[in-house]
């Protein structure tokens, strides 16, 4: 297992370098010149060239890439074009907000989805099942901007119960209650799709498992139906569910661009949008790299979880 993970880590390095090459090319080929963003409209040609040189954009793309890579190996992500801050600080600043929002949304989503998915499978083809499956489709397919704006309209504008956005009331007491109030709406929006997606996987996985011979054995032992499902069904239906968790976790980092934008949540998603519109190549590259690391890390975590859930799964 340890050897396997080490091997995976070593393979991850060239993969990550490949990802950075691709994203470097894409970011640089995107229309728009960053220099335009950072000079006065009436700047002279000289001034423009100076800014270009200051941003390091006067060199050919491959030179810039290798410079960037060299800095990266020294643990340096460069400086943001937009704010001149070190990109590292910028990310660290935003990461906490995103991790908090996504972490809570994942946990809430799963806590609702897993029992509902199981219930739906056990009560297959009853109104409970239809209601749950219908709800999960709604959760997956409703666009987050629509749900987000709808919730803001009802709960913030009409009822005035909850704030429209941000992480805390400006100049407020920044109490826990205040923070929670700010989180409720974005968490609902994000967990709706996480939960809807998860319900469908849990349900179908559980339905498969319930057909297995060992479930019949468990019934033949005289176990109560609920115990059959929980003691014998759940663990075995976990494997495909772990895959979904592995796909959900990178969202922790990538953030939910749209949701963060709607609720002005100061996380990575919002940073992504602002970096794109200000052609802040350095920050964009760092965010891409971070997302790629998150995907690879989540895959490895899923592998570890597989072998924990099922002793038949071994890596060497």
């Amino acid at each position: 297992m340890r050897k396997y993970l080490l091997k995976r880590l070593l393979i991850a390095i060239p993969v990550l370098i490949g990802v950075t090459i691709c994203s470097f090319i894409i970011v640089n080929l995107a229309p728009g010149d960053p220099v335009d963003m950072y000079v006065n409209p009436d700047a002279t040609l000289d001034q423009i060239e100076m800014t270009r040189a200051a941003l390091g954009l006067d060199q050919p793309m491959y030179v810039r890439y290798f410079k960037w890579l060299g800095e990266l190996f020294q643990g340096n992500l460069g400086f943001s074009f937009a704010t001149r801050e070190p990109v590292m600080d910028l990310l660290a600043d935003r990461m906490g907000a995103t991790l908090l929002l996504m972490g809570v949304s994942l946990v809430v989503g799963y806590l609702i989805a897993i029992p509902l998915g199981i219930l739906s499978a056990v009560k297959q083809n009853t109104w409970i099942d239809y209601l749950t499956t219908g709800g999960s489709f709604l959760g997956v397919s409703i666009p987050s901007f629509f749900l987000g704006l709808g919730l803001v309209y009802i709960f913030s504008l009409q009822l005035g119960w909850l704030p429209t956005g941000g992480m805390a009331t400006l100049g407020g007491d920044s109490s826990l209650v205040d923070q929670i109030k700010h989180m409720i709406l974005p968490v609902i929006v994000l967990s709706a799709s996480i939960c809807g997606n998860m319900i469908r996987y849990v349900r179908s996985s559980m339905l498969e498992v319930l057909k297995e011979d060992y479930i019949r054995t468990a019934k033949a032992k005289g176990l109560k139906s609920m115990m059959v499902v929980i003691k014998h069904g759940l663990r075995n239906s976990l494997i495909p569910i772990i895959t979904v968790i592995g796909m959900d976790i990178p969202k922790l980092i990538g953030g939910a661009v749209v949701t963060e934008q709607i609720f002005q949540w100061p996380g990575l998603g919002q940073l992504t949008i602002s970096s794109i519109s200000s052609r802040d190549y350095a920050t964009l590259m760092a965010i891409n790299l971070l997302s790629a690391i998150a995907v690879l890390g989540a895959n490895m975590l899923a592998d570890i979880l597989y072998s924990a859930a099922d002793s038949r799964i071994h890596y060497d």
């Binding site: 297995e212 011979d213 060992y214 019949r216 054995t217 468990a218 019934k219 033949a220 032992k221 005289g222 176990l223 014998h232 663990r235 075995n236 859930a309 099922d310 002793s311 038949r312």
Partner: peptide, 19 residues
């Protein structure tokens, strides 16, 4: 079930819980 009347099945490869 399992106390007064017990049952064994055809396929021992799939009749036991793998986990």
């Amino acid at each position: 079930r399992g106390k007064d009347i017990a049952m064994i099945f055809q396929d021992p490869m799939t009749s036991l819980n793998p986990t």
